[in-house]
Design a protein around this nucleic acid. Structure first.
Length: 270
DNA sequence: CGCTGACCCTGACGGC
DNA sequence: TGCCGTCAGGGTCAGC
């Protein structure tokens, strides 16, 4: 679920309910996430006003005057607004209950997500080594080209590395490489500047378009469905191994790169 | 330092 | 029907 566009969609969806609202309490039913939820987290955030909700990569930051709540949705996590009277279901690990009566409910079957605290001014190690936001001006073809010189990792692994650029998950990595006509296994250091320009452009385009359609995704989120149907129709390669290429009809190949399923067209991608 | 693969966890799905 | 292996949109970490 949580690719960058869905994290952004989550942010846009919950922010109106949080902004300027006071936290009544944090209810932690399961503290064993990617890292243990700090014992003192409830005490730290209770009775604090959420000044804003920000996003860095796939991390969400709920800002208060005394620090920020740092949330990651991991692989299977979601955060949705529910009425506090709604009984929690299986894997509904944490509630952020607001004085308004609204409640942000964290659901995460695989527990790869995290809830951590960030003191004001503190540079959290999880955030300090992150690359630029893909939609920022700091991210472009020239940046990718310069950073990739001498690197032998497959270009797909390169753009999925959060130290290079944040927010490009497995689906988008597959898709943007197809759109840019680059073979996913090509060494990052052997991609030309011109092709990195194309690639950076594709990344911005695909992520922007996905965020723009986030409204539909949020409704699915709230409805508990989670799998946005609108998105599958736009996929050129992801999940289509063995099917025919939408450009040249060749049979799409599927391999594993860094334990991630990788689909590409031998003809269109070099 | 760069790169690869193991690992964290639950659930869904296909083959037998 | 059950059992087993594989896979899943995240990321960290140890070891070479």
């Amino acid at each position: 679920m949580p690719e960058l566009p869905e994290v952004e969609t989550t942010r846009l969806g919950v922010a109106p309910y949080c902004q300027g609202q006071v936290v009544r309490e944090l209810v932690v039913r399961e503290s064993r996430l990617r890292w243990p939820v700090p014992q003192q987290l409830s005490a730290l955030i209770a009775n604090r006003t959420i000044q804003g909700v920000e996003r860095r990569g796939k991390y969400l930051l709920f800002r208060t005057a005394v620090g920020s709540l740092l949330v990651h949705l991991g692989m299977s996590g979601s955060l949705r607004v529910v009425d506090a009277t709604e009984p929690p279901g299986r894997h509904d690990h944490i509630d952020i209950r607001l004085r308004s009566g609204a409640c942000l409910r964290f659901h995460d079957p695989r527990r790869f997500g995290c809830f951590l605290w960030l003191a004001p001014g503190e540079q959290h190690p999880l955030l300090s080594n992150l690359g630029p936001e893909p939609l920022s001006d700091a991210f472009d073809g020239d940046y990718l080209y310069q950073l990739s010189r001498g690197r032998s990792v497959p270009v797909k692994s390169f753009i999925m590395d959060g130290k290079v650029v944040v927010g490009v998950g497995n689906i988008y990595a597959n898709e943007v490489l197809f759109l840019a006509g680059i073979h996913p296994r090509r060494a990052a250091g052997r991609v030309s500047q011109a092709r990195y320009n194309t690639l950076a452009h594709s990344i911005k385009q695909v992520l922007t378009s996905a965020i723009e359609q986030g409204g539909t995704t949020l409704r699915d989120f709230v409805g508990g469905d989670g799998k946005p149907g609108y998105f599958a129709q736009q996929l050129y390669v992801y999940g289509r191994g063995g099917d025919s290429c939408k450009h040249c009809q060749a049979r799409l190949r599927e391999i594993r790169l860094g334990q991630r399923s990788t689909v590409f067209c031998v003809t269109c991608q070099r």
